[in-house]
Design a protein around this nucleic acid. Structure first.
Lengths: 340, 340
DNA sequence: CTGTTAGCGCCTTCAC
DNA sequence: GTGAAGGCGCTAACAG
């Protein structure tokens, strides 16, 4: 049996298909009794709009895209992503939009995909994640004329509107906590320098650890590729420096765990000899001993906000940046006062 | 500037739009020189087919759906999922299909979404994951007449075709390895009993640990919800049982890590006093000390195979089950001969 | 207030 | 070989 169409409803209700369309979309043009009759008929038939037809007619795909240019391996370990997606969908579902997810190798492939999606009218807009310094994507998207929103930072190029979490204040919050415990030499194991949020955190770290006299109170920060291997290497480097830190802040959870192992192997106890803070809460941070003090973000809410903003953008509303809430610090067992 | 249409190409090449359609789809009806002229024109214009129009005309959405009914929290920690998605897309992209991903609360919501997607013609078919015992989904999908494929097991109801990884042989492989090291009392910390793959693993575990005399050689297996908390609890229970095992097999990585901590707190060394095997390799398994011996599956290849089968099903090819490769055992530091 | 009509962009039968 | 015409299902002008 064929799926019911508007024509079927029209026939059943004894009206024209235009009347049905009006009634279904709740707009003026039909009398109330007729509208009721039409709705009843549609309901009886179990009618649902055909996405393709609607998209063709409305010039709107009813879908937005999310492309991720990261190795799947890295993603799997980040609870942040799934939460983000979950939030994005909560917002999209409310407005009957779908999410197209695609994983690619690099930014070039990502741009290629945007080009294709836009030419095919497969999506109405896209959500960009992982903004980078010297990011080619905003300009490419502008050239395409494709609605897009940067989830993860304000666009330094000033091209795309963005939604972001305040990394700087989050970092300040962490450093304040450590300072409050009495730490003076704090280390930072950051992510790759090409990522914008990494840069923001590092800048904030430098600012927060600068003493009133103007000199820094800890060893230099170390950059990594976010992997456990580099997290371990960075930790070794910090712990063997002349100004050995009494606390270390890691830019993700995996590196924090790896770093904790290194500290222990070096004969240092956590948190007695060295305190550890991880950026991003996850199961991983709760199964270790000691459990980790972490920075917890509302990834889901962040995703929802980003999706809503994108939808508004697609609807032609004026673009605008939105700064999302500051993450909370969840204090667990890995942070304590420094050794006397 | 408007996006180019077939009519534009036709005008530019000086032919009818039907000729363009024939040329573009590589079917007879146009002379070779004309075809070339048309292709050149299309290329010059940067034409790409409009998905909505094509979908409407072809009665085919060019997209498949993947609904996941699990808390986002749980997913994030499973590298398996992202790898799976990555593989699915590799296969879909080749045939210009898109993937719609959606996370829901439970199986009822999942079925509701299938119903809507199908009524809206939003997707051409779906990939089901996490098959359960007494799973309502296959019957629901059959009632809808929606193409669907079970990724993760043969359908016990015999309704949907499936693609799966041989959990039984994988488990046998693990037990054989432990037996080879000399272990006789082996424990199993499994996932929730409602999941089919959990059931298969447990059954295989019971079969493999049964001695020739017919009695089992270890304590009873313990079921969990896959969380670190229950993994820890299960480990405590096993280690305090009268027949304390010298080796424990965990159904995921998070529980294995939690279990290792518990063992250590109980004063047992890993692997000297107790060996540990995790199901599913992940970063997590490599940042611990000792590093974990794990069962590594080709999630990406598995996803690609599943997607290909689904596409074939949508094309009307006869359904058929496919058993995917048996996972490899990656031997690391957490397994060793039992204490004498 | 209602109904007729003409597209949205693509594909495909059917005459030429 | 090629062109004209109609339909996929829905929406939006435009008359009635």
């Amino acid at each position: 049996m064929r799926r019911p169409t508007i024509a079927d409803i029209a026939r059943r209700a004894g009206v024209s298909s235009a009347a049905v369309s009006f009634a279904l979309n709740g707009r003026p043009g039909v009398s109330e009794p007729t509208r009721q009759r039409i709705l009843a008929a549609a309901d009886a038939l179990g009618w649902q709009p055909n996405t393709a037809a609607r998209a063709l007619s409305a010039q709107r795909a009813g879908a937005v895209g999310l492309v991720v240019a990261r190795p799947a391996r890295t993603l799997g370990v980040e609870p942040f992503f799934m939460q983000l997606i979950s939030g994005i969908q909560a917002a999209l579902s409310e407005r009957a939009n779908a999410l197209l997810l695609h994983l690619v190798e690099d930014v070039e492939a990502e741009i290629g995909l945007y080009r294709r999606w836009w030419a095919e009218r497969r999506v109405d807009g896209v959500l960009l994640v992982d903004p980078r310094t010297a990011d080619p994507r905003p300009a490419a998207l502008r050239a395409l004329g494709m609605p897009a929103l940067l989830a993860g930072g304000p666009d330094p190029a000033g091209i795309l509107p963005g939604v972001w979490i305040d990394d700087a204040r989050a970092m300040t919050r962490i450093v304040t906590h450590l300072r409050g415990l009495g730490h003076e030499r704090i280390g930072h194991v950051s992510g790759p320098s090409g990522l914008l949020h990494t840069e923001r955190r590092s800048a904030a770290f430098r600012a927060a650890t600068r003493t009133s006299a103007g000199s820094r109170t800890g060893p230099a920060a170390v950059t990594t590729d976010f992997s456990d291997t580099e997290g371990a290497r960075a930790t070794r480097s910090l712990l063997s420096s002349p100004e050995r830190p009494t606390a270390i802040v890691y830019d993700n959870d995996v590196m924090a765990v790896a770093g904790m192992s290194v500290a222990r192997q070096s004969g240092l106890a956590v948190p007695t000899d060295v305190s550890i803070v991880a950026w991003e809460d996850s199961t991983l941070c709760r199964v270790t001993h000691p459990t980790l003090t972490t920075l917890s973000r509302d990834a889901s809410g962040f995703g929802a906000t980003a999706a809503e903003r994108l939808l508004a953008l697609i609807d032609g509303e004026p673009p605008g940046d939105v700064e999302f809430s500051v993450p909370e610090l969840t204090i667990r067992e890995s942070t304590a006062p420094p050794p006397a």
